[in-house]
Simulated scan of single mutants.
Amino acid sequence: MRVGYALGGNGHCIAEARHHAGAFLDQAVSDHQLPMSARARDLTQLVVSELVTNARKYAPGPVLMELRLTASVVDVVVWDSDPTVPAARASDPGRIGQHGLEIVHAVTEKLLVEQERVGKRITARIALADIPRSDTTGPASMQRPTPVKRTAR
């Protein structure tokens, strides 16, 4: 399943994006009996919220969001007009705000940033099932390699 949305830059687009994501996942579950954990649904809406918030905050103009679903993952893809590649800041428990990318990186299986001719596209991949962990070395997100950053061709 795949769906795309053009979101205006107004103050309602973040809530609108979360609503679209929830409705899309609900439809996948009801129409296709796709097994999905409550955690995956919540994380998808969190990632949508963080990525759309950043796009709205740092890029002028509209935001495009695409949701792609397979049997095991959901990809949240957000495009905005700012070509600047975001970077997670160093951990600072005293810092107020600006933790969005850190959060997205921590809860996703994969995070990819691609510069486009105009703007950038960020793809975040979230597992639909809760994966049982048999190790004690830390969160799965800490075991992933650093996200790949590419430039448009």
Rank of each mutant, 00 (worst) to 15 (best):
R125S: 15
Y58K: 11
L67T: 00
Y5A: 15
A140D: 13
T123R: 14
V104G: 06
D31H: 00
V77H: 02
A15C: 09
A17Q: 01
Y58M: 13
R117V: 11
S81P: 01
P93R: 03
V113H: 04
V52I: 06
I131S: 13
P60D: 15
P86N: 06
E50C: 11
E114I: 07
V104H: 00
A129T: 02
P86S: 11
G22K: 13
S49C: 13
A124S: 08
T136V: 11
G4E: 09
Q98E: 09
D26G: 11
G4Y: 01
T70K: 06
S141I: 10
Q45T: 07
L101R: 03
R153A: 14
N10A: 15
I122N: 01
Y5E: 00
L46N: 05
L64T: 00
Q115D: 07
D82C: 12
S30Q: 05
R117P: 08
S91K: 13
H105D: 14
P132T: 06
G97T: 03
P147Q: 02
I103R: 08
L128R: 07
A38P: 03
V47P: 03
V107N: 02
R153D: 12
V113T: 13
V52T: 03
A106P: 09
A152C: 14
G119S: 05
P147L: 10
I14W: 01
V85Q: 09
G8D: 07
N10P: 09
G100H: 00
I122W: 00
L25A: 08
R39D: 07
D130C: 08
T44K: 13
M142K: 15
I14M: 08
V76E: 01
R2Q: 10
E109S: 15
V104T: 10
A6I: 14
L67Y: 00
R153G: 14
G61R: 03
E116I: 05
Q143N: 08
V52A: 03
G11S: 11
A88R: 12
V63F: 02
G8V: 05
